[in-house]
Design a protein around this nucleic acid. Structure first.
Length: 591
RNA sequence: GGACCUGUGGUGCAGUUUGGAGUGCACGCCGCCCUGUCAAGGCGGAGGUCGCGGGUUCAAAUCCCGUCAGGUCCGCCA
């Protein structure tokens, strides 16, 4: 199934219309039809002839009126007439309906319209605030109609894949209890319980685990998640996930279930069924690409130089980790360009960025040109060129720092220099597995859970949980597509003894655990099956399929980066009466 | 919390570097003309707080400071 702006399989006939605009073809010639839609364009040729291009969600049909017409752009009209071939030489190859037209039309105005604030046309790029303010007009554009329908098709094929695999869709509450961990939550003050709040779930994580205890066995949900965190091109306050959880399964089972749904969705959206999704460990992803969500459409991999500069006399390279990337042909970069790259590296947290222009030296020996070359021995310079495999004309960028920071900076520079828009093909899916169990330490020196505290450690790393937590891998995994994190999941802890040890390592006391997650831990005492799950971000997946680099393009009514909705003007102050009902009083505005 | 970019009739742009009358282009809008167009065509017309505030200057869309809004990114997103 390929999704496009092609008409739906139904005729679309209703009590008001017999056909859809975009569906009319040569086979309809001779039929008397009534179509309804919006006036896309009107062309008048004096008092005896006028054309109306009528648009609905399926496309445009030309209507010929024998006289004048009293319609303007975006009027809502019904047109009745006879489908006929266009006269020789007047066909329009740009329209799927271009072979035919509706002749001798009578036009009924169903609703007049003011001129639209911008052209309902894919060819003009209009300021996004204006589009959002009049989103109902913006969504009439063919591209936006296609995006909405693509999203529905992806949604539908994923649901079908889950149904087929024996999963049952269960709805979970939007009004939930605060669980102070992870993303900032939206609070909903209670009218009946003054001073208390529900929160909107950042994900149905705990609810779906309870459904496993409840014996649901295989759960899924197209779930709305809400997170009060800063917005980005790939992040809105509210977003949708294909949320999955299953019992008596391993990581392998979950990857298979989710792969099936994603591959089906890809086929539905693009017509191409992707092959098996390759895997990479988290450690390999960091080593080679400097990120846990590598874009594997291009190489330009990070090269480790720590051994080359072991014991170096150059203090800047005397660091736990020295890595480089090579920009082919980059030696022509201007000084200001290199300064800009250095600024970018510093903004990402590096102390500096060392660059080396690779050039053909005397006697055909390849050498480097760099402000810091004089601090390096001949052996180190030669080692740099050999290890990176750089050729004359290339540019080598080197960062030396702690391992994670070095990877982070070079991973970002790699994308800056070699990256392409996420939606540009080809689609390269990747499972990233074996995430670390912990990531960094908090103010008290306790490890921080990399995924969440209910993530099951690798069996073979369990004995190091207390002695060397930083080395413990978890049974957590991400799905990545072209450098975007599409989703993540894990095998959950279902045994109380392991859960206690994890809480203990995290510095969470029994009392704290009970007050934060008591209802979950309590439920686990009544027979929790081994279980695991995943969640796929639908907005991101659909955006990439739609060729969009911004998820707002596949969301009907999104918000701006500051969380503003130009159409409704949300968020807005509550009335004093509404505040009183909720038992709320406002503090003076923070300056 | 921070960095960078953007803001000029309804829409999309040029003009800002080097200060000199709201100057220009395309689309749209309004009126008239037009019997085969299709982003129709012709003639005429209307439409502006150059985001906002302050400063420099004889003079500011243009220079300076502040501020607001939008976008991209860093932080943040277990």
């Amino acid at each position: 199934m390929t999704v496009s702006s092609e008409p739906t399989p139904t005729t679309g006939a209703t009590s008001m219309r017999s056909h859809l605009c975009g569906a009319l073809r040569a086979t309809d010639v001779g039929s008397r039809v009534t179509v309804c839609g919006w006036v896309a364009k009107r062309r008048e040729h004096g008092e005896h002839l006028a054309f109306i291009d009528l648009r609905d969600h399926t496309g445009i049909i030309q209507c010929v009126v024998p006289g004048t017409v009293d319609v303007r752009s975006e009027y809502v009209v019904a047109v009745e007439g006879l489908v006929r071939f266009r006269p020789d030489g007047t066909g329009n190859a740009d329209l799927p309906t271009g072979e035919v037209e509706i002749g001798d039309c009578s036009v009924t105005i169903l609703n007049a319209a003011e001129p639209p604030p911008f052209a309902v046309d894919d060819r003009v790029e209009v300021d996004e605030v204006i589009r959002l303010k009049h989103r109902f007009v913006d969504l009439r554009r063919p591209k936006m109609q296609a995006n909405l329908r693509l999203r529905a098709a992806v949604n539908s094929s994923m649901r079908a894949a889950m149904d087929r695999q024996g999963f049952v869709e269960v709805e979970t509450p939007l009004l939930w209890a605060p669980t102070p961990e992870g993303a900032r939550e939206f609070a909903v003050p209670s009218r009946l319980h003054h001073g208390s709040c529900y929160v909107l779930p950042q994900s149905p994580q705990l609810a779906k685990q309870l459904l496993m205890v409840a014996g649901v066995d295989r759960y899924y949900q197209v779930a709305r998640c809400l997170r009060d965190e800063d917005l980005r091109a790939d992040r809105q306050f509210e977003f949708s996930q294909l949320d999955v959880e299953a019992s008596f399964v391993s990581q392998e089972d979950i990857l298979a279930f989710v792969s099936e749904a994603v591959v089906d969705a890809a086929e539905a959206a693009t017509g191409d069924r992707p092959g098996p999704i390759p895997r990479m460990t988290w450690a390999e992803a960091m080593d080679r690409y400097g990120t846990d969500k590598p874009d594997i459409r291009f190489a330009m991999e990070l090269i480790d130089l720590t051994a080359v500069f072991a014991g170096t006399g150059f203090r800047a390279f005397d660091a736990p980790c020295v890595k480089a990337i090579v920009l082919e042909g980059g030696a022509t970069a201007t000084r200001s360009r290199l300064d800009a790259l250095t600024d970018r590296a510093k903004a990402l947290g590096a102390k500096g960025l060392a660059w080396f222009r690779v050039a053909e030296g005397e006697g055909g020996v390849t050498g480097v040109d760099s402000p810091v070359a004089k601090f390096l021995s001949d052996e180190e310079q030669a080692g740099l060129v050999t290890a990176t495999g750089a050729h004359a004309g290339d540019l080598i960028l080197v960062v030396a720092d702690e391992y994670r920071l070095t990877c982070h900076v070079l991973g970002a520079l790699r994308l800056d220099l070699g990256g392409r828009p996420v939606s540009e093909g080809p689609f390269r899916y990747l499972w990233v597995v074996d995430f670390p169990m912990f990531d960094g330490v908090d103010d008290q020196g306790n490890p921080i859970a990399a995924h969440h505290p209910f993530t099951m450690p690798h069996e073979e790393d369990l004995d190091r949980l207390e002695s060397d937590p930083a080395s413990v891998r978890s049974q957590a995994y991400d799905l990545v597509l072209n450098g975007w994190e599409l989703g993540s999941g894990s095998v959950r802890v279902h045994r109380a003894d392991i859960q206690s040890r994890i809480f203990s390592v995290l510095g969470i006391t029994d009392e704290e655990a009970a007050s934060r997650f008591g209802f979950l831990l309590g439920a686990f005492r009544f027979g929790a099956p081994p279980h695991a799950g995943f969640a796929v971000g639908l907005d991101r997946l659909v955006a990439i399929f739609a060729g969009e680099d911004n998820i707002r393009e596949v969301i009907a009514f999104p918000k701006t980066q500051s969380g503003w909705d130009p159409m409704t003007d949300a968020p807005k102050p509550l009335s004093p009466a509404a505040l009183r009902d909720l038992g709320l009083q406002l503090l003076p505005k923070l300056s």
